[in-house]
Design a protein around this nucleic acid. Structure first.
Lengths: 338, 338
DNA sequence: GTGAAAGCGCTAACAA
DNA sequence: TTGTTAGCGCTTTCAC
């Protein structure tokens, strides 16, 4: 049998409330009684049952985290931030991977609320109104993180994608590139994050008077980048492009792999840069020039925001912006003969 | 206010026991009453409080997973398997990252048991007797996964490392290599997994009558592989080595990056292979020849084993062996002029 | 087939 | 400072 508060009380010769008081330090207990209780706890190796405690306090100290796929590098990085900061505030994480399935997400939301999680963090890659509605329906503290869509007026945390995109484009131009190509996952959604990035790209192109094209990709994974290599490289040749700015690191890595396999040298033949600075960006060779999105911090800030909401604090701003950084590495070369 | 079983009972005009019966299908309920209850549930959008339920049934449907770092590629892959299979059996996962800190692990074990998790899965990279003792102390279903150490007679799941190592070595020899080098994290522990792998390596070397050296590394991360590049490459030159068999993919990737940076071509100048087949192994270029450890399956099998234990089933074998595979890719070349 | 009542392990009034 | 008691939301005997 597991030992309960009753056992401790009996052994210490006090009431269970007194035991509760010393456990929680909730009310004064005389030194000698406290000592007796502590000894009994020690002796019995007593550990409070958090389930019982949760039931009465209505605090589960649990936060539900729904992710697309923990196997995505950037997701893992965010979860690190979420978990580490959550722990600082004494919250545990229940992890659920949806693999992009909306029904799974819906189911998780329901189950998580049953489990009395105090907040939900949704890291999604889809434009999932239903799920968002469902969560908001529960009026539970909630943060929504989505790299691709930004439709709702929802608490979220990200970087200023437009400015980041401009900054990267300016850097590429500074490197001497005259004809640039931006490769992005094609969607015609006004609320997409890509839209913002394209705006930023176009702004720099226009300001500096360069030639900037856009290529709409069919996906945003490493495999997609690889598979579109043929078509993209063909496109760059026809248009005399010297640098490809990929909307996501995955695309860039896939493209670089394609180039490697085809004997195309990066950055000698073509410069490539990405967006994200996932761990692989600095592991791969040549190291990928990219926009650093602070994934760990994003997770950290997100959960802190959820915890704030749990504690009833008002969020001064529901769109939290984190700083970005341009990581200048070897995948983008300076154009010399200019 | 959240709606409880009482609200449902009141609205349906029945007792709470009846509501409980229809929710759980635990006892026969007349069709018309069942219908009324179901309607009330629907109307009130009632969701059972799992915390209350756990308290009385003593089933939390929670399994604690303690990992070193979810940022490690192979760990993320295992957690995918753990979570996905756990979910099939209706278990949720509480994730805790220890970052190798033993006190953190100890703390997690304690907290997890307080939270009434029904089992614990520990993915560790240390040789942590204390933690194992602690968990066993709780007599809670438990699986221990460790890539590096294998000291205890504990339920675990892995591949046959000795045989895998032999198979890879034989493949390298088949490729025509005469002078091989095995690079591993150096530790003189008889219980280390590396010991097994070295045995397997030596066996193949001996059987085939080749020359096989061993280099003891100072770590097992990508950075370690990179930093030891100088010394390792120097060693290979002095000893006329044509292929480096790294005990872990990370080491191999680090070493390949070093080679890239120094203008050493893989596999033209030197062949390199790894162990693990983490996701990066097939993304990196040249793609890494490596031993495929089925990380996802390892996680899947591990949690299934924990669930079996929870259900009181006897484990027929507490050392579960999964099949491995030799992934033949471009980082290892055939020696032609022989 | 249904309801009343006890109780899971704990916290938090309320009394003393 | 301490003990008694009610009750968190649910399941599960035990009667009927």
């Amino acid at each position: 049998m597991t030992t309960t508060i009753k056992d401790v009380a009996r052994l210490a010769g006090v009431s269970i409330s007194t035991v509760s008081r010393v456990i929680n330090n909730s009310k004064p207990v005389s030194p000698e009684v406290r000592k007796r209780v502590l000894e009994a706890i020690e002796l019995l190796d007593y550990k409070p049952n958090e389930v019982a405690r949760s039931l009465v306090t209505r605090k589960s100290n649990l936060i539900g985290v729904i992710v697309t796929d923990i196997g995505n590098f950037y997701v893992a990085e965010m979860v690190r931030g979420i978990e580490e900061i959550g722990r600082m505030y004494n919250y545990d994480i229940i992890l659920s991977s949806s693999y992009g399935n909306i029904d799974a997400e819906l189911k998780f939301v329901k189950f998580l609320t049953r489990k009395q999680v105090e907040g939900i963090l949704l890291i999604s890659e889809r434009d999932d109104n239903e799920v968002v509605d469902e969560i908001q329906n529960y009026k539970i503290p909630f943060i929504y993180i989505n790299r691709y869509y930004n439709r709702y007026n929802l608490p979220t945390v990200s970087i200023d994608n437009s400015r980041a995109s401009t900054a990267m484009t300016e850097y590429l131009i500074e490197l001497g590139h005259e004809n640039l190509l931006y490769v992005t996952y094609g969607n015609d959604d006004n609320y997409s994050v890509e839209r913002k990035k394209i705006e930023g790209y176009n702004k720099a192109i226009k300001d500096k008077g360069k030639n900037g094209l856009i290529y709409y990709a069919k996906g945003f994974t490493i495999e997609d980048g690889y598979n579109m290599g043929d078509s993209i490289i063909d496109f760059t040749r026809k248009n005399n492009i010297s640098v490809i700015f990929c909307g996501h690191d995955e695309l860039a890595i896939g493209l670089m792999s394609y180039c490697y396999d085809k004997g195309i040298s990066v950055p000698e033949d073509i410069s490539i840069c990405g967006y994200g600075d996932e761990r692989i960006a600095s592991i791969y060779r040549p190291r990928l020039t990219t926009v650093r999105e602070p994934f760990y911090d994003t997770g950290a800030v997100a959960i802190r925001s959820v915890i704030k909401q749990i504690n009833g604090e008002q969020l001064e701003d529901n769109k939290l912006l984190l700083p970005f950084q341009i990581m200048k590495r070897e995948s983008c070369a300076r154009i010399k003969d200019k």
